[in-house]
Amino acid sequence: MTVQSRMIRTARIQTHVLERPATGKAVRRVLLVHGNVSSGAFFRDVLEALPDDIHAAAPDLRGYGESEAAPVDAARGLRDWSDDLAALLDALGWADADLLGWSLGGGVVMGLAVDHPGRVRSLTLVAPISPFGFGGTRGPDGTPNSPDFAGSGGGTVNAAFVAAVAAGDRSDAPGSPRDVLRKFYLNPEKFQPTPEQEEVWLSSMLTTRTGDDHYPGDFVPSEHWPNVAPGTRGVANAFSPKYTDLSAFADLQPPPPVLWVRGDADAIVGDASLFDLAQLGALGAVPGWPGAETCPPQPMLEQLRALLERSGANGGESREVVLSGVGHSPFLEAPEAFLAAFTEHLQKERRT
């Protein structure tokens, strides 16, 4: 079936969806949830490659793609997005679904499982953010480095990059959206997109709404390094550990089965992320770093792995697949290996 584009009015917002209906009766319904500075357009190839008996949809989250640019209330953590998805399931007439979440979307689908557990059959987490958000924490349990969660939130985002997104910059200048796509969304040493692919993905990135209510959000000054702390509005504050704590996922009885797929060359999500100011401070790229005892880099992989181990004690099942030479976008960089792991996960869940 051909991928279709349609706008759906839910009980919450106007949501744009790329949809690939099943051929004949659908035996599974799959929702694919994108990450930050992107949209559902990144999933078009996945939609086309899924087995014919799967009905799949890739929505644009609020503030991205063609969906409504409703503001993000960061004090709710990821719930504006996860509640939007629950409303979308209602509008689609789906009682439940298998959910895939990439990067920020990984946190969103975990949050949906916490708040609406009966609607989630399985989770596939693709290069997901930590269950304790992004930046400003230490240890497997997400202990904050400072009481105001300094080092996370809207003030930690590169302002020049945000301005370039807002301006629709299509250049290949250092730090431009195209440059970030090439160097960080993908591992340039192993994967170069076709010109056509790059233009589609860049166009998707440039749909991101910017400002205090969107990306990156507001911030407040802090007495703790790097002297900025989360505000209450917008994207980067919503996934700050001040407002995002998904540790309750491990307490679900039982948690849904989880497939975790990541690349070993991911520079965005990892235990030494180049987007974590503490890691940049340790490398000398951000001045004034107080040292590892006060402000260690966030162990993002360790934190998720510890949570999944906890969920195992409650009957949860998880599998971690690490793809060699792959960066932040396994489904783009290694589509055959990714699709094999993903479809195996869905087929295994189908038999249980």
Rank of each mutant, 00 (worst) to 15 (best):
T2F: 10
R6W: 02
A11E: 12
T15R: 05
K25N: 15
V27R: 15
R28V: 09
H34D: 08
R44G: 04
R44C: 03
V46G: 08
A49F: 02
D53C: 04
H55N: 09
E68P: 00
R79P: 06
S82I: 00
S82F: 07
D84E: 01
A87K: 04
L88Q: 06
D90G: 09
L92T: 09
D96L: 04
G107N: 04
V108H: 00
G111C: 03
S130L: 04
P131N: 10
G133R: 11
G136H: 09
S152P: 07
G154C: 02
N158T: 13
A159N: 08
A167G: 12
P188C: 11
P193D: 10
E196H: 04
M205A: 08
M205L: 10
P216C: 00
H224R: 14
R233I: 09
L246S: 08
L246C: 07
F249H: 08
D251A: 15
D251K: 14
D251E: 15
D251C: 08
Q253I: 13
P255M: 05
P255D: 09
P255W: 06
P256K: 05
P256C: 02
G263H: 03
V269A: 10
V269Q: 08
A272W: 11
A272S: 15
L277P: 12
G291L: 09
G291F: 07
P299F: 07
M300I: 07
A306M: 07
S311E: 00
R319I: 02
H328T: 06
F331C: 01
E333L: 07
F338W: 11
